[in-house]
Simulated assay, not measured.
Amino acid sequence: MESDETLKIFITDDDIFFRSGIELVINAEKHLTVVGSAGNGKETLEKIKDLQPDVILIDIKMPMMNGIECIRKLKLEYPHMYILILTTFNEEEFIIEGLANGANGYLIKGIDFINLVNTIQDVVKGQYILPAEVASKLATYLVNTINKQPKLPEFIYSNNTFTIREQKIMSLLVERYTNKEIADNLSVSVGTLKNYLTVIYEKLQVKNRQEAAALLRNR
Rank of each mutant, 00 (worst) to 15 (best):
I95Q: 00
I96L: 10
E97A: 01
E97P: 01
G98W: 05
G98L: 09
L99F: 02
L99V: 13
G102W: 12
A103H: 04
N104R: 11
Y106Q: 05
Y106D: 05
I108C: 03
K109I: 09
I111S: 02
F113N: 11
F113K: 08
F113T: 10
N115F: 06
N115Y: 12
N115P: 02
V117C: 12
V117G: 09
N118K: 14
N118G: 07
I120T: 05
Q121C: 14
Q121R: 15
Q121D: 11
D122E: 15
V123N: 07
V123W: 10
V124T: 15
G126W: 13
G126P: 10
Q127M: 14
Y128N: 11
Y128R: 15
I129A: 09
I129S: 09
L130Y: 08
P131M: 13
P131S: 10
A132P: 00
E133N: 12
A135Q: 08
A135W: 06
S136F: 04
K137W: 00
L138T: 01
A139R: 05
A139I: 08
A139G: 02
T140L: 12
T140W: 03
T140P: 00
T140C: 02
T140H: 06
Y141G: 00
L142A: 14
V143S: 13
V143P: 06
N144C: 08
T145P: 03
T145F: 12
N147E: 07
N147A: 10
K148M: 08
K148P: 00
K148W: 05
Q149N: 07
Q149D: 03
Q149E: 08
P150Y: 12
P150F: 09
P150V: 10
P150M: 05
K151M: 10
P153A: 02
P153Q: 02
E154A: 08
E154G: 00
F155I: 06
F155Q: 08
I156S: 08
Y157R: 11
S158L: 15
N160L: 07
N160Y: 14
T161F: 09
F162T: 09
F162N: 07
T163C: 05
T163R: 09
R165H: 05
Q167N: 04
K168Q: 09
K168M: 11
K168Y: 07
S171C: 02
S171D: 00
S171N: 01
S171P: 00
L172A: 01
L172S: 00
L173K: 00
V174K: 13
V174A: 03
E175I: 01
E175F: 05
E175L: 12
R176D: 15
Y177K: 15
Y177C: 10
T178Y: 14
N179R: 01
K180C: 04
K180V: 15
K180F: 15
E181C: 10
E181V: 09
I182D: 06
D184I: 07
D184G: 04
